[in-house]
Structures are given as structure tokens and as C-alpha cells.
Design a protein around this nucleic acid. Sequence first.
DNA 1: ACGCAGGGTTACAACGATGTAATAGTCGTC
DNA 2: GACGACTATTACATCGTTGTAACCCTGCGT
Lengths: 335, 335
Amino acid sequence: MRATVRDVATRAGVSPKTVSNVVNGVVFVRPETRERVEAAVKELQYVPNLSARGLRNGRTGAIALAFPDLGTMYTAEMLHWFVEVAHELGWAVQLEETGRRPERERELLSRGREHLVDGLVLNPVTLEASAIVGADSLPPVVVIGEVEQTLVDQVSVDSISAARDMTAYLLSLGHRRIAAVGAVGPAFNSASNRQRTEGYRQAIAAAGLPTDPSLELSGEWSPESGRHMVLEALDRGLDVDAFFCFTDSMALGALSALASRGISVPGDVSVAGFDDIADSRFSTPPLTTVTFDKRAFADQTLSLLAARVSDRTLAPRYVAIPHDIVSRASTRTRH
Amino acid sequence: MRATVRDVATRAGVSPKTVSNVVNGVVFVRPETRERVEAAVKELQYVPNLSARGLRNGRTGAIALAFPDLGTMYTAEMLHWFVEVAHELGWAVQLEETGRRPERERELLSRGREHLVDGLVLNPVTLEASAIVGADSLPPVVVIGEVEQTLVDQVSVDSISAARDMTAYLLSLGHRRIAAVGAVGPAFNSASNRQRTEGYRQAIAAAGLPTDPSLELSGEWSPESGRHMVLEALDRGLDVDAFFCFTDSMALGALSALASRGISVPGDVSVAGFDDIADSRFSTPPLTTVTFDKRAFADQTLSLLAARVSDRTLAPRYVAIPHDIVSRASTRTRH
DNA sequence: ACGCAGGGTTACAACGATGTAATAGTCGTC
DNA sequence: GACGACTATTACATCGTTGTAACCCTGCGT
């Protein structure tokens, strides 16, 4: 049987509350009493029951992280930092997978408090502002990534400007026929690809080039789909000198497609990605991509969440994480 | 304020216990009563407080998953399935990262019950049997991956035979100088690489070839390290016609190293991996690797855990997940 | 010496859900 | 019509922890 404050109290000859005081260390306890209690705690291997504590003071010490797909490198890297930072803040982390299902996202928002969590970090794909409005009492929540809403705290990279920057970079290398892989379209339409498409178009327009819809390849944001979009573009003889893939994972699919057709990267075409996942340093060739500090991303998100947990009346805030272009071997100057 | 059983009970004109009965659905409740209660639940948006439930019946409905490094593709894919299966079983999932620190692994075992979990799935790197013996009262736990112990439930691929099979496969393609990338050695020594090294050596010996220590490249199991080991081997002029990397992530590093030296895969050398992570289908070239059913892995693990949670006196069981060789373009017959 | 201040400790209640045992209610049967 | 045999529902206590408020004690001031 597991030891409780009662057992420890009896052993140390004090009251349960004194044990609690020692364990929590908020109230001053006479050194000799503290010592006796600590000895008893050690002897009985006492560990506080967090269910009871959670019941008593309404905080569970856990937050939930919800991502659309756990099986991707992007999510893995984000998780790594989120768990690290959360633990530094004394939070345990509960994991949820929304699987791109809007109803699951809504469910998390409305029933968020069921699963013993003090707050929620949600990376939505489909979520629209209406879903947030719908829930009349939200748990403390920070959404991450591109979502068009101003009702709750949010952290993201400024995708419009990042996509604009990358496109401008490719243009500066001399590329003129830049395909946007994963652009908004019938196959996939979310805030993320709307914004990246927007940034791409802005840069093209700023360079005085015409917008060419045939260069905007629409599809799911996965390696399979990236490969597929590129193969299809090649099959229909698209005139293109660079592929700007809206995620690294699509870029890996693109590289695979190009390699299978014997097209050299960066000899024949350049390829660029977005996210700077670890794999992009080990692809053939290594990938030029949009990078950002993922540790800072987690830091910012969880500090917003901490603030909101302690004061739920704060006005919603938005934090943009700075981004940068990292140039690797998959892009080269074109003449 | 959040609704409780009391509020629902008042609203529906019944007692709190009846609400509980309806919500849990174990006792029979008269249809009209049930209807009234369900209506009240919906109107008040009642959601049970799991802290209270956990306190009352000793179960929290959550399990913990602990992996050494969350930022890898292998972990991401495993997580994906574990979370899916856990949710099907009605468990929430709490995430821990051990960071290859033995003390963190021990801590999870000894203090596992602190964090509101009914059980623990632990993927140890350094954990040895002694650490498990040390803890005199273990939480329900299943270890996954290669660990040399028989004290608690365990699920893993049979690494010895999988490594033997892959090595035999490479031999059958005509390779005679097969490097083992990530082999046991001073740089990294864990049950995993001991076992894979053992399988590799068995196959070499079974083919009547001499064991050549210079072919066993020791190092961390990461892409960086994989690249590094291969580059170093090339630099010292190692005579080699295939690289068997003990994980796909190292294999991706190896491919990157070979590409940077202009060595063709599979033209000049073959490369094989282990784990069949998603990326390995999109590398250049796609990777021959050891595959296994990760969904089945999660299924088996969590059903062992469920069994142990409900009966902690069961004898420890071991389940091996079947593996297979999947042949892709990174390997080719040698003459 | 007596009273008062203040710190250290305590008894008690409450957080919300649910198992237990007792109660109210229903139906069938003789 | 009354009694038994269930069956649906209830009152109560409890899980372990901690906030509240009351308590006791030591030490100081007058």
C-alpha cells in the first residue's frame, strides 16, 4: 500500500497538515520538525497523490499538446522542445492527436478540462475562428501555427513573410519559373497554405513576374503527396526551374521524385523547403529551407499559456517567431 | 464554474449517485430517468472530473510513455500508434523524455505513480536489470526495445535475428565486406547495439567469413553520427561494399556522407537500415531496411500493460514482434 | 508577574465522484 | 389484497490533500 500524509504524520508525530507544509515548503516549519518529517517521508517513500492534490486545488500540473499528426518529423521536433520546456516549468505533458479532424479539435476545446489538464496547446489544421467562438467557456489555450483568429493566444512563424522571403531568395538566385508545392487549391485548403501561397504570390508580383496558376501545385502536405505533385508536374511538361515546397517533408518527396526521373538537384532545378526539420540536413542534396528557433517557439508558447492559466481574463496575444533562410546545396544560382 | 454531479442531479431531480450510474453505464437505470439525466448532462455541459474519479477509485485513466529522444522519426512513428491504440483503450497518454539519462529512467520507475498514471511504457537505452531490481515496488510497466531483463513485461523486435537476417540478405546479394554502422563499441554500448552486432556477427560467421573488427563502426545512433562514421571509414580507406546501418536514421546520414563523396548507392556500395521509418521511402535512393508492424507493436505493448494493470501478480511476459526485410533501391546484387 | 503578539501547529472541512448498504418502489403471485 | 422478490434509487462515507481558522506556546514588554 502506498503511504499517505497520514502515515507520514503518524510516523513523525505531527499532524497531516504539517507534513503537507513541509512537502510544499510554502509555510515556515521549525527545522527539527521539518527534519523529522523529511526522515519519515524518506522511510515510507511517500509520494504525494496528484489526483488528490488536483482535486483539492483545481490544478493538475499537466497540460495537453494536440497535433494533427504525431508521425511526422516536424511534430517530433516540436514535441521534443515542448516536453523539455514544459518539464522545466513543472508541467507534465499529455498528448493528443487530432488527425486533421475538425470535430476532434473542437472536442478538445470544449471538453479540454476532462483529462486532468490545466491548459492546452493546440496545433490546428482545420480549426476556424467559428469553432473557437462556439465554445462559450474555453480552457486556457494557445494555438500554434497559422490560424486566422484573434480570440485566443497564438504563436506562429509569420508564414506570409517567410514564404515571401524564400520566394524572393529563389528569385535572387535567378530563378524565374518557381513552382509552389503544396499551394492552396481544391486538394488542400487551410490557413497555412493560404498564407504561404499568399507570400509566394507577393514575391512573384513584387518581382514584376506574372502569376502563373500552373505553377501552383495543390496537394496534401506529406512526402507522398510532394512526390506525386512533382511527378505530375513533370509528366505534363511543366516549365519550371525551382520547386518551393511549403514543408520540408514535401521537399523530401520532391527530391525523391526528381531523383527517380534523373533530374539533378541543384544542377537542373533548385528545391527549397520550409521548417528546417533535422532530416533536411541529411537529404541528398541537403535542403535550403526556412528555419526558426523551435526551442524559442516552445518557450514563447508555454509562457503565454502559463500567463493565461494564472489569469484567464488577459487579452489574447499573438507572438511571431522570427524566421530565417538557411541555404544549403539544394539551391544554386541560375543564369 | 464547472458543473458537477450535484448540479446535474439537482437539474434532473435525482441523486448524485444516479447521475454517476448513468454516466458510467454499469448499473441499469430506468430509461426515463436516464433520459432526464442525459438531458441535464448536455444542458450543463457536464464533464466528469478525472482527478476526483482518480482519487476515488485509484485509476487515473492515463498511462505514461517514456522515450529516450522525442525528436526522432522512429519515436514519432511509435508515438503515433501508441497514442492511437491507447485512446482506443480509453487511456490518455502522458509523455516523458528520458534523454538517455539512466537516472531519469530509474526515477520514472520508482516515482512512476506520482504523475497520475496507471502504467508506464518505457523505452530504455541504458536501463539494466539492476535498475529494475532496485525498485522494490514497481508501477505496472512494459519495457519496449532491447533490454536484457526478465523481471517485467517486454515487447521488442528480435534484434539478433533481424540483424542476422539483414546481414544474410546482403551476403546473398554477393556482398563480402559489410560494415556494421552503429555497432557495439566504446562510443556506444547498449543492449540494442549489442544484439544487432551479435546478429550481424552470427550471419558473417555462418557464411564462413572472418570477423573483421575494422568493419564494425561504433558510434551514437543518430544521422550526424552515421554520416561521421561513414566519412571516417572512407577516409581511412576501408575496403567495404555495403553499409548495414543499425537504424534508418544512421542510414540517412550514411547516404548523405556517400553522396557528398560522390560514391554511388547502390552503384558502388549498398546501404541498408533498420526500423523502416517513413523517410526511408523518400531518401535517395529509397532504403532497404528491416520492417515491422508498428501498429502491432503498440497493440501488443498496451495489451500487456492492460493485463498487468488489472493483475499485478502475473508472471512477466515477453513478446517478439515479427520483422521482415523490405528491399528497396539502396541495395543491389554484387558480382 | 501578567498580558499580548506572533509564529508554529492543529482540527476540521471541502474538493467531486462512487462503492456500500439501506431505502423506496414495482410487479407478480397466491 | 397482502406478501415476498426484486429493482431502481438514495444517504452516507470515503479516497488524499490542503485552505481556513482556531489553537497553543514561547518570549517580550511594562
